[in-house]
Design a binder for these strands. Structure first.
Lengths: 194, 194
DNA sequence: CTATTTTAGTTTCGAGTCGATACTTTAATG
DNA sequence: CATTAAAGTATCGACTCGAAACTAAAATAG
């Protein structure tokens, strides 16, 4: 199947929104050509980036901005493909921990989004900074409008403590749990900007 | 349903691709909350922008980067909703012309993408120019990689002629057809950059 | 001028998304 | 201890998606 894409010419007034749309659409179509669809890719990426309090159906649901029923199905699909595993929480039996299998980890090395990431990295440093800043602001505004909430890295949370317990380098004052190095540099559901 | 979104912090290395993804995802989720899904919105937008040689199932298929079977279904859905109409071409009976109904035109005034467009317009002029340029280049690179083709406005095509026939202001030297003012400022399937 | 091929579009298939709703199990709260 | 909340699953109907088979009409080739 040949794919065609529309690129607006600069001679008309700004069609930047459409341009963004098509750029993402390009990645999505690349994703569609793999064994995962775009939503499944997003879920797999999230699970990779989420810390142990967040790699759950609930966390994925909130991240994906979808409903728990839909996400439950997506996770079943990923499980059937042998990319993730479900483990019941020992303390709270309602909770499920989602972990990537070696196959899941392996698949992420062929993430179609990485190609866009590469292209973006080829932009001049100052240009990229500018865009990043603009994008963050736009996302902030957009999120406010739709009542969304920001996720963030554990390390930048106001509940993040450096006071080391024996064995663990960090500590979460909200959940009262010790934090491994790994958790600190990953996305947390409970993130509250410092 | 509450929606949550993840915003990467600038303290890590550039996650610009993810940022773009989430920004577009925000619009998509707004679209999902309407009577049309994201693909149907894209199709409706295309039909609005396409000139009379391009507002067809074939044109939509190429624009959407999908397969004709899928697009056929999407168009049936739009037709059932009373937003578009199908008209058989008088000369070539294989061809179908797709036209927006008044209801379709009306719905476009509530396009969720317009909100992003508005936000983008609030950016400083030079910043927007920069981004537009960067996005176009990225799209060009991406399209080359996936063997895609660029669409464009009729007016900027190398087959566009100003020599007026009686009645029509412009002319297409490829199709040998007179062009109305309306056609000239719309997207053409056959577009070939001058 | 007819036979073959190409083009435009539809139909059908199975897997999966999507929101909505109903449901189960387990934990928290009154 | 009863009620309520939370985490997940199951199921519904409309729809997307690629693939493949199909129809009808136009273009092309011998």
């Amino acid at each position: 199947m040949t794919r065609y894409y529309f690129v607006m010419t600069t001679e008309t007034d700004s069609r930047l929104a459409a341009l963004l749309y098509r750029l993402v659409g390009l990645v999505r179509s690349r994703e569609q050509a793999t064994i995962l669809n775009p939503v499944q890719w997003e879920a797999l990426r999230y699970l990779h980036w989420a810390n142990r309090f967040s790699a759950s159906p609930k966390g994925a649901t909130e991240y994906l901005g979808s409903t728990k029923g839909t996400v439950s199905q997506t996770l079943i699909a990923l499980e059937k493909k042998g990319l993730i595993e479900k483990r019941q929480d020992a303390e709270d039996k309602r909770k499920i921990h989602l972990v990537l299998t070696p196959a899941g980890q392996e698949l992420l090395t062929q993430d179609p989004q990485a190609l866009l990431e590469e292209d973006l990295k080829s932009l001049p440093e100052d240009q990229r900074r500018l865009m990043e800043e603009a994008m963050e602001n736009l996302l902030r505004v957009g999120l406010q409008r739709s009542g969304g909430k920001r996720f963030g890295f554990c390390r930048s949370c106001r509940h993040f403590r450096e006071d080391a317990e024996e064995g663990a380098p960090y500590f979460c004052s909200l959940l009262g749990e010790p934090l491994a190095q790994m958790d600190a540099d990953r996305i947390c559901l409970e993130h509250d900007a410092a």
